[in-house]
């Protein structure tokens, strides 16, 4: 009997800790927590081999609520801590929990490098376009003219788009999800889990206290069909109530355009290819209200994994039996003998 058959499978509830969840009632974080527990149970994750690492912010409390190993670190630095954990033990399954402030403001640099190195972890960026824990200041993803305690006349800085940023950093797995679209979120997280290397998932997360319904234009039940396109690999890029809208290649703009499937020939709808980085960029760049918001797995094209390459470099030069003593004795040495 191997270990697997001896162990009874864990349920989502088995991943709950005894700690009281302290997010605001109605926070989108609850939905993500539930989805993650479901994923862990469904993929058969082992509690002891799973590590959740977070920075600072509302979402960063996440590890306290998952009964695995967890490390609530400091603001913006979770990707760096995660990298160290995996350098010490590449067999661990590491999840990084971050937010728009944690991951793109104070920690933007580390996010860039964990993605371009392709460290094997899942990075969930909870984007609520606000600094929740510090009481609602505007964040790097807040839209221009956002009024907040620190921008009473409206913000003036141009926001960064997390998904485009991740693609620009060279991430090999980039997806967008919505906190309340649980079925899609679970599938995306499972795919992220399976992806070798860094898997980046931007989750539109509703902050009911400081930024309620900021994503309503594409997440509210009435708006989803017309204003959101849920992409799937190898499936036509269609959306709309009856699938009446689609995306097509716009040669003049070197980008995408929306087409009316009732008027245009159905064959002109583009088919999603998750291995095409240009298409992923084009989907990520689509701006409301001209375009629908693209969610789903925009890009999934595995590449060499950092800590595997690191181990390969080590094993390529590793000399069995060679010790530090040998290193210190190599090169120019001399012996002083016993003298009278």
């Amino acid at each position: 009997m191997n270990e697997l058959t001896m162990q009874s499978a864990l349920t989502p509830a088995d991943f709950a800790t005894d700690q009281e969840v302290r997010w605001c009632p109605g926070c989108g974080d609850y939905a993500v927590l539930k989805a993650v527990k479901t994923v862990l149970a469904d993929v058969g994750a082992k509690r002891e081999n799973t590590v959740f690492i977070s920075g600072i912010g509302c979402a960063a409390r996440f590890p306290y609520y998952i009964d695995t190993y967890g490390f609530h670190t400091i603001h913006g630095r979770a990707p760096a801590v995660a990298t160290g954990v995996l350098l010490a033990n590449p067999d661990l399954d590491v999840w990084v929990i971050t937010g728009d402030g944690d991951g793109l403001s104070i920690g933007g640099n580390h996010l860039m490098h964990v993605l371009r190195r392709n460290v094997n972890c899942q990075i969930l960026l909870f984007n609520n376009e606000t600094y929740g824990l510090t009481k609602g200041q505007y964040s790097p993803t807040s839209r221009v003219a956002t009024r907040s305690p620190s921008t009473p006349s409206g913000s003036i800085d141009h926001p960064v788009d997390p998904t485009q940023y991740a693609l620009g950093c060279g991430a090999n797995f980039v997806a967008r999800a919505v906190d309340t679209q649980v079925k899609q979120l679970v599938e995306i997280l499972k795919a992220a889990y399976r992806h070798p290397g860094a898997a980046f998932v931007e989750i539109f997360q509703n902050c009911i206290v400081f930024n309620e319904d900021v994503f309503d234009d594409f997440t509210a039940r009435a708006n989803v069909a017309d204003n959101q396109i849920q992409v799937e690999d190898s499936a036509p890029l269609v959306y709309g109530v009856d699938g009446d809208r689609a995306l097509a290649f716009d040669a003049d703009a070197l980008g995408l355009k929306t087409i009316d499937m009732r008027a245009d020939s159905p064959t002109s709808a583009l088919v999603h290819n998750a291995k095409n980085r240009n298409l992923a960029f084009a989907l990520a760049r689509m701006a409301r209200p001209t375009f629908p918001m693209a969610t789903g797995i925009l890009y999934d094209n595995p590449g060499p994994v950092y800590e595997v390459e690191m181990a390969n470099v080590g094993s390529a030069v590793r000399q069995d039996g060679k010790s530090l003593q040998d290193v210190m004795h190599a090169g120019f040495t001399w012996t002083v003998g016993e003298t009278s």
Partner: peptide
Amino acid sequence: CAAIGVAY
């Protein structure tokens, strides 16, 4: 931070 991750 990576060194702290290593220690952890």
